[in-house]
Design a protein around this nucleic acid. Structure first.
Length: 262
DNA sequence: ACAGCATAACCGTAACCGAC
DNA sequence: GTCGGTTACGGTTATGCTGT
């Protein structure tokens, strides 16, 4: 009888998202001692304490515990690193959790079955016609990102395509003699980094915490959107170039007309 | 040695119950 | 209503265990 009334009050609290330690422990699948340890370590927020030995926990505590377990289990991160991630990020627990769930799923087909096998720097230079110095410059700027495999550094399909593009720019007339070097790409990298950060925030602010309930395949959404947006950005880029040239041309014409007088 | 728990002991409280 | 008893449960602390 007693237990039934206790369960009843538990149910009411659960509905209000207010849990006691036992409910939180059961919901998270983590022992009480572990939860207290996480709180002590600052990985989980402190509960609302009603008395010296009584506290209530909410959904935020549950989500925090699940995120910690996920980062441990899937990413093999130590608690000290998880703590830094939680404190160093301006993302919410839900948003971090959404990112973690997506990690490793994006563009997996391409990475798992590359059409082109990764190559060494000398083969990359041979294949593309780029100099070793140019490839190293692109690497310094993190525009190509080789992977260290034992003693060898290997460049994957994207790196190869990136260097091929760089060589095409050279052939199009952007010559070293004119002052064009890899650093001219820095602005693209930096602006794209800002763009991607903003895109991530936009996406996360809308879907974080709702992926399961809405049954979303977030990795596929991002993959599809990347292709579509790349096409759209190409068109916008082209239009902006035309508009910019027109704007300066117009300004130049007005200057000429002003000098010639009415 | 250290991180990351797990367990036990102890003390205290919440929630319930029956008696008055 | 409130008082005291009972039981389940929570918090703290110390200690021990396990894997790296």
């Amino acid at each position: 009888m007693r237990s039934r009334t206790t369960e009843g009050s538990m149910g009411e609290r659960a509905a209000q998202k207010k849990m006691r330690m036992k409910e939180l422990s059961r919901a998270a699948g983590v022992p009480k001692g572990t939860i207290l340890y996480y709180i002590k370590e600052g990985l989980v927020p402190r509960p609302v304490k009603t008395h010296a030995n009584m506290a209530y926990y909410g959904e935020a505590h549950l989500r925090a515990i699940r995120l910690v377990k996920e980062l441990q289990g899937k990413r093999f991160l130590p608690l000290s690193v998880i703590k830094q991630i939680l404190k160093g990020s301006d993302l919410s627990v839900d948003e971090l959790r959404t990112l973690v769930e997506m990690d490793g799923k994006l563009f997996r087909n391409l990475k798992g079955n590359p059409a082109v096998k990764p190559v060494t720097i000398s083969k990359l230079a041979d294949r593309t016609g780029a100099s070793l110095q140019e490839i190293r410059d692109l690497e310094r700027l993190r525009i190509v990102c080789p992977v260290q495999k034992g003693t060898r550094k290997l460049y994957d399909e994207d790196d190869i395509r990136m260097v091929e593009c760089w060589v095409k720019l050279r052939k199009a007339g952007f010559a070293k003699e004119l002052g064009f070097d890899a650093d001219i790409l820095t602005i693209h990298r930096d602006l794209l980094r800002i763009l991607v950060e903003e895109e991530a925030k936009t996406l996360l602010s809308r879907v974080a915490g709702r992926v399961e309930s809405l049954n979303l395949d977030l990795a596929k959404m991002v993959e599809d959107a990347t292709g579509i947006l790349n096409t759209m950005m190409g068109i916008i880029h082209k239009r902006l170039i035309v508009e910019t040239v027109r704007k300066y041309t117009e300004a130049f014409r007005q200057q000429i007309q002003a000098k010639q007088g009415p």
